[in-house]
Design a binder for these strands. Sequence first.
RNA 1: GCGCCCGUAGCUCAGAAGGAUAGAGCGACGGUUUCCUAAACCGUAGGCCAGAGGUUCGAAUCCUCUCGGGCGCACCA
Length: 593
Amino acid sequence: MEDEVYLFHQFLYPMNLFINKIINLLESEISLPPDKIGALLEQPPDNKMGDYALPCFSIAKQLRKNPQDIAAELSQKLVPNDTIVQITATGPYLNFHVAKPLLFRTVLEEIASTGASYGNSLIGKDKTIIIDYSSPNIAKHLAVHHLRSAVIGNAIYNLFKALGYRCIGINHLGDWGTQFGQLIVALKRWGSNFAITSKRNSFEEDSTKQETLTVNKLNELYVTFHKEAKTDKNLEEEAREWFKKLEDGDNEAKETWQHFKEISMLEFDRVYKRLGITFDSYAGESFYNEMLDDTVKRIKDSGLTEISEDALVVNLEKFNMPPCILRKRDEASLYATRDICAAEYRKREYHFDKMVYVVGSEQRLHFRQFFKVLEQMGYEWVDTCAHADFGLVKFKQGKMSTREGKVILLEDLLEESYKIAREIIEEKNPDLENREEVAENVGIGAIIFSELCTKRVKDVLFDWDVILNFDGETGPYVQYTHARMCSILRKYGESVTTSVDYNLLKEDDEIVLIKQLEGFPFAISRAADNYEPSILSNHLLDLCSTFNRYYQHHRILTDDNELRKARILLIDAIRQVIQNGLSILGLKSPERM
RNA sequence: GCGCCCGUAGCUCAGAAGGAUAGAGCGACGGUUUCCUAAACCGUAGGCCAGAGGUUCGAAUCCUCUCGGGCGCACCA
C-alpha cells in the first residue's frame, strides 16, 4: 500500500539532475531506497527558501525523533557540492539550493535545441489513443454549448500528440436517431417548398421553384415539430414510424436523411476550420447501423439481456443503476446500443490503448451504464476508456434548448469576437499590416482560451462580457505577451546564442521564470493524464504574468552586452514555450498585435 | 425520493496525490507611458476555504453527516 503511494508520487516530480544529486547526498544518511527519497522531495512555496525541500516528518516518525532536529542534523552532515550549493534547515524542512547558473544552462540549452518540440516526450510511443469529441447532432446549428467538447477535445488531442501518442480524433456525429423521423415528418407537413436532393445532382433540379434547405430552416422545422407535438399526439408516433423506415433502409427516408447530413456538414466544416479543429474520422452513429445486430447478439449470447416492458435491456440493478436499453419496443436501436457497437469497432479497427469521450457531464450515467455493459461483456479494455466530462453552459435565462429555438450560434460568437479584436487593433495598433488575420487569431483565441482556462467540471455561465474580455487572464493576454517578446527579439536583431554567461541571470523573477520553463513538460503530462487542458493554460498564464512583471522592472535590451545576450536567450526560451503551449491549446501566436 | 458532481474574496476561478504565511483575474479605489507594444505593470480594499464532527505531527485538500446549488434517474442524445 505504502509502496503504491510512493510510486505515484514519483511521477509528480520527474527525475532531473538536481533531484538525482540530492538523492545521492541523502542516500548515505537516510535508510531509504532512492526512489522513496525522491518521492519525499517537494518544492518550497518560496524560491528564497530553496529549490527543493525534504520534509522530515515521516523520517522523524520512524526514528522517533523531532523533525526539527533531524533537519538540523542533516544540514550539518551533508556536504554541498557543485550542483547542490547550499543545504539549510528551516524548521522541520531541509532545503536544498541548486547551482543557479547550471539550472539556467540546463534548461535554456534544452529549449534552444529542441525548439518547437520542447515539452514533448516519448511516453506514448507506439500507443494509440482515441479521442471522441465535438460529436454534434446533424440538422442542428453548432451553438455555443457545442464549443466546449470541440475545444477541449482538440486540446486533449494535441496534448497526447505531444506525449508521442498516435491520436485518432473521431467526430461521432449524431446522425441517427428518432429526431430524424421527426424532421422527416416536419418536412413533409410544413416544408413541401424545399428541394430534397443530394447536393451532387442539385444542379439538375429546377431550383428556381424550390427553396434551398438550410440548417437554419431545419432548425425551424424542428422547433415547429416540438411545438405542434404538444397538441398533436400523432406526430410523435409518425416520427417513430419514419425513423423505423430509415433504419429499414427505406429509399425516401434515406435520401432525405442524406440531404440533412450534407447541408449540415457544409456548415460544420466552416466552423471547424475557423476554430482550427480537425478530425481523423467522421464515423457517426449511422456508420454502425449494419453492425448493430452483431453487437446485440453478442450481448444476448453473454446472457446479459432481458426483456423488460417490451424492450431489450441489460439489467444493471445490482450495480445500482437503471437498465441499459438496447432495443426499444419497436426494435429500434438507442444511442447506448450504438455506443457499445462503436467501442467494439474502434477496438478492432484501431487497437487503442486509451479511449476518451469528451462529452458533457449530463451524460455521466449513460457512460457508467455503457462502460458497465462493456465490462460485463468481458472486455477488459473498458478500464482504458474514460469519460472526460465537462460542465454545462448555462444562460441567465436557464439552460439552452434547441427545441425551443433559443440558442446563440457559434458562428455569431466567433464573428463578434473577431470584430472586437478588430476594433481593439484599430485603436491600439492601427498600422498593423495583416490586421484581419491577427484579429481572427486573437478573436478566436479569446474564445478558445476562455473554454480552456477553468477546469472541465465547472458549469459555465455564458456571458458575452466575460467571453469577449481581452484583459487579464485571457487568451489575448498570453498572445500579447508572446508578441511583446517577439518585438524585443526583432529589435535585438542579432541571432540568439546559448554561448552566454549564465552567472548573469540571477534576478528573482529570472529564477521564477526558469523554473516555470523547467516545469512546462510536466504541465503537459499532468494536463494529459487528467484530460485537463486547464493545467496547461494556467501554467502559461503564470509564466506570462511572471514575464510581464519582469519586463516591467528589468530592461532586457540593456547596454551591458553580456547581460543582454543572456536575457535575450531567456526571452527567446519563454517565447518558444508560450508558442508551444498555445499551439497545443489550439491558439495561434501572432508576432505582432 | 435515489445517484453523481460542485461549494475558496462582491463576481469568475487557481491552489502540484495532505505540508511552511490562502493566490490570481474581473469589478472598485489610487498610481505608472520623454523608457524593449499600457491588450501591460504597481499599490489599496476584500477570506471562519459552506457548516459540524473525525483521521494525524499537520486538512481548503482525505472520511462521515448537515445545508446550499447543478445534473441525471426506461425506450431522446
